[in-house]
């Protein structure tokens, strides 16, 4: 088993780091455009029993 998987990473994490490094090593004129692909805006909320999980946790307090 590879070291990164033992440390709790998966191949997607591995791939993200590798892609990020590659984008930073591009020629300057290509880099600006490539760095846009670093961005991600998605927000993920786990749900439980029909409502967001964190709301339920807050309600329990």
């Amino acid at each position: 088993m590879s070291a990164w998987r033992q440390a709790g990473l998966n191949y997607i994490n591995y791939s993200n780091i590798a892609a990020k490094m590659l984008r930073r090593a591009l020629k300057p004129e290509l880099r600006a455009d490539a760095l846009k692909r670093d961005e991600s805006h998605v927000r993920i909320t786990p749900w439980l029993n029909g409502r967001p999980a964190h709301l339920k946790a807050a309600g329990a307090k």
Binding site: S15, R37, E39, S40, H41, V42, I44, T45, W47
Partner: peptide, 18 residues
């Protein structure tokens, strides 16, 4: 079990999918 939002304002990237 999960909701993802902030989708559709900008073109999706591979990182979003990740």
């Amino acid at each position: 079990i999960s909701v993802c939002n902030e989708i559709g304002r900008l073109p999706p990237t591979f990182n979003d999918a990740c």
